[in-house]
Amino acid sequence: MDISLRTTEFFVEDQSWLGSRDGTDVTQGMTLHLPSFNANIHYPKGYIPSGIVVARITSGPGAGMHGPYAGSTSESQTVTVTGGPTGGTFTLTFNGETTGAIAFNATADAVKAALAALPSVNASDLAVSGGPGPNTPYVVAFRGQFAGQNVAQMTASGASLTGGTTPSVTVTTTTAGGSAAASGLDVPDGFLLTSKAVKTANIGAPLHWRGVIRVSRLPAASGFDDNARRALGAKFRFED
């Protein structure tokens, strides 16, 4: 009989990010594809923390398993009024919809209001900084339903601008939206509910797919971003 002393280490995982226990008893099973995780980022303490956003791998190594959601960048575009106009108006077109007339020296709030008035856009879908024109460009940041997406570049018309030297309006993409990740890692699927020490190539784990999430309590490097908030909004209620 072996009566030598043996020790086992236990720890209580931090699940303060759970806003309620709803959904914890109906989790879906999944397998984590360990090679998709970065040791320094995702499990520096030897285990993958509960609360990380995961995505289902759709092709290539690990297909059918889950890896860490890779995150997506939200797009921003710059609108510049050139030629030194002293009067008149311009318009912006997004997804085939054209704004009403925007004054040549409009404030950022006025540009946002013109875009938010489009049928397919809500005020929460964008933020506008910069201006007033024509000396300072406007930067339109897409969020809300457009968060993390590579949206169509707006077009502009300065045909109604007056004064100056050949006034016009240009639109450039400042930051392209979307994700460089492939194989499904750009599509968040839910949250890892519990963690296990990293010892084997792949680890069985429960996928938390509904409930209330306290965003401020999510672990470091959870991967949660505006796109995850939008994509998972039908499954979860988020509390900041």
Rank of each mutant, 00 (worst) to 15 (best):
E9N: 14
V121E: 06
A106F: 10
R21D: 10
F94C: 00
L192S: 06
V79L: 11
A197H: 07
L5T: 15
L92P: 04
S20M: 06
L5G: 12
K235N: 13
S59H: 10
P85E: 10
A228S: 07
A114H: 05
G148Y: 01
D225L: 09
S222V: 08
A180L: 11
Y47M: 12
T166P: 04
S157R: 03
D186G: 14
Q28G: 15
R56A: 12
R143P: 02
V53N: 09
V26N: 13
T8N: 13
S160N: 09
K45M: 14
W17D: 03
F191Q: 05
Y138Q: 05
G133D: 03
T107S: 15
V81A: 10
P206C: 07
L18M: 08
G148T: 02
G144M: 06
G88I: 07
A101R: 14
L207K: 02
A103K: 09
T194D: 10
L161T: 00
N202I: 00
R21F: 09
G130Q: 02
R56T: 06
D225C: 03
T166A: 14
D240K: 14
L161A: 05
V54N: 07
N122L: 09
T194Q: 11
V212S: 13
G71A: 13
V169G: 04
S16Q: 12
T93Y: 02
A141Q: 01
N95H: 04
A70T: 13
N40S: 15
F142G: 00
L232C: 03
K112F: 02
T89S: 13
G184V: 02
S168V: 02
F90E: 02
T86K: 14
A197R: 14
G144P: 04
T82K: 15
F191R: 04
P68I: 10
E9K: 14
S124Q: 07
H66P: 03
V26K: 15
G88T: 11
A55D: 13
F94G: 03
P219D: 05
Q28K: 14
Q149A: 08
F191M: 01
P219C: 08
T155K: 10
V54T: 08
A159P: 09
G64A: 12
